[in-house]
Nucleic acid binder design. Structure first.
Lengths: 229, 229
DNA sequence: ATGCGTATATTCGTGGGCGAATATAACGAG
DNA sequence: CTCGTTATATTCGCCCACGAATATACGCAT
C-alpha cells in the first residue's frame, strides 16, 4: 500500500520543522512554538498536535526515539525526524512558498453579500472596521519594534550559534509578522478607499443598491423595527 | 433549551442571504451562487450545503416552505427565511464587516518556518511565487474588465429592477473581486521587497541564516544529494 | 506535612466538512 | 426508441479538528 497523503494541517509542517532542529516530545513542541510566537502564524491545538503526530508516524516521516524518562513527569514520548520526513519537510515548504493557494476569508464572504445591507449601514460598519484595522497596525508595529530590541531571550539558547547571543533579534525570525502587518495595511487601504467611493462618488450605484435592498426587505414585511439610526 | 450557536460555515450565511431574496431549494441556491461567481468567495460543497441548511432549520432561522412539485425532477424541498433568520443574517453580516478576525494562511505558516531552507533556495522559491502572483493579478483584472462590459445576463432577471436590465454590471456585485485583487497585489509587493532585501541587503542576516540552516541539516547526516542547482 | 495552584503531558468524544455515491429525468444522436 | 450524456437533486459515511477531560508532579504557603 502507498504512503498516505500528506496531512493538510500546517501544524504537521511545524512538527517536521521542529524535529529538524532536534528530537522533542509533543508538549515541548507546543511550548517551543509558543515561545517563538509561531502560534500566531500556525494554529496550535493540543488535540490536533497529537493527531498530526500520529499521522506523521503512520506515514513514516517521524518515529519514536525514546519513551518516557527525565525528571519524573508523566510519561512522555520523544520523536525524531526520519529521512523521508526530511524530504517531506522540504517538499512541503517548497509547495507552500512557490504556489499561492486560494484561501477563503470571512471578510471576503461578507463583502460578496454586501447588497443585503442598506448602503448607509454598510458604510458605518466599514468605518468601524477601518478603526479596528488601524489599531491593529499600530499594535503590531509596536510589538515588532520591541522584538527588534531585546527579544533574543525568547530563543532557546542552544538554537543559536554562540556569537549571536545577546545581539538583536534577527529579522529572519519575524518575517511572518512583517507579512501580516503588510496585509492588514493593504486591507485598511482598501476599506478606506471603498468607503470614500461609496460616500463621495455614489458608488454602487447607491440608488440601485438601496432599491434592491428595500425591495427584498419588504418581502419580509411589516413589523421590523427600524435598526438604522 | 437555548438556540444552538450560529454555524461557523460562511456557506450558511450565503443561504440566509439567498433566502432573503426569495424562497429556494438547495440545488437552486448552489446554482445561483455559481451563476453570480460567489463560489469564488464562499466555499461551496454540496455536502456542506445540506448540512448547514439542516442546522439552520434546527435553529429556526429557516423553514420548509413546500416539498417537491414543479416539472417532475427528483423530490425537492423549498426553504424560506424566518423572522429570526432575518435577524441572524443581519447580525452575522454586521459582525463580519465590523470585526476583522485573525485567519491563518498557508503562506504565513511557510514564512514563519523559512529558516529550514537555505537562503538561496528561499529566494528562488519566492521569485517563482512572485511570477505566479503577477500572473494572477493580470488574469483577475482581465475578468473584472470583462464583467464591467456585458455581465448583466448573469443575474437572474427578476432580481434586478427593470430599468437596469441591459446596462453595465454594477460594481456593487463585484466588490469581493476587487478586494481579492488588492490583496494579491499587496502580497506581490511584499514578496518582491523581501527578495530584494535578502539579495541586495544580505537581510536575515544571510550568513547567520545559512549557519543555522546547515547546522541543523548536518544532524541528518551524509547522503542527502544536494538539491539546489 | 498538607493543601492548592500551576506546569507538565496526553487521551477521548463529538461534530462538522467534504468526497463520493446514489437516483431520476431531460435531451439529442443514431 | 434506446443509449449515452448532462443536468437535477440529495444522502451517506469517513476522517479530522478541537474542546474538554484526565492525570501526575512540582513548588510554595500555612
Amino acid at each position: 500500500m502507498l504512503k498516505p497523503s500528506r496531512p493538510s494541517n500546517p501544524l504537521a509542517l511545524a512538527v517536521l520543522a521542529l524535529l529538524f532542529e532536534r528530537p522533542m516530545h509533543p508538549y515541548e513542541m507546543a511550548a517551543t512554538l509558543k515561545e517563538r510566537h509561531k502560534e500566531e502564524s500556525i494554529k496550535l491545538r493540543y488535540g490536533s498536535l497529537y493527531t498530526v503526530i500520529d499521522a506523521l508516524v503512520k506515514r513514516g516521516d517521524v518515529m519514536v526515539r525514546a519513551t518516557s524518562r527525565a525528571g519524573n513527569r508523566p510519561e512522555r514520548t520523544v520523536y525524531e525526524l526520519t529521512p523521508s520526513g526530511l524530504d517531506e519537510l522540504r517538499d512541503w515548504m517548497r509547495d507552500l512558498l512557490r504556489h499561492p493557494t486560494k484561501e477563503f476569508t470571512q471578510f471576503e464572504a461578507g463583502l460578496s453579500l454586501l447588497p443585503v445591507l442598506p448602503p448607509e449601514e454598510a458604510v458605518s460598519l466599514l468605518r468601524d472596521r477601518a478603526l479596528h484595522l488601524s489599531g491593529k497596525v499600530w499594535q503590531m508595529e509596536g510589538q515588532l519594534a520591541e522584538l527588534a530590541q531585546h527579544e533574543i531571550g525568547a530563543m532557546t539558547k542552544q538554537d543559536l550559534p554562540a556569537p549571536l547571543a545577546r545581539q538583536k533579534f534577527p529579522p529572519l525570525f519575524v518575517v511572518e509578522s512583517e507579512f501580516r502587518v503588510a496585509m492588514v495595511r493593504a486591507e485598511l487601504a482598501f476599506v478606506n478607499e471603498l468607503v470614500r467611493r461609496i460616500t463621495e462618488e455614489g458608488w454602487g450605484p447607491v440608488d440601485v443598491w438601496r432599491e434592491i435592498q428595500t425591495k427584498c426587505a419588504d418581502q419580509h414585511e411589516t413589523k421590523e423595527q427600524p435598526t438604522r439610526q
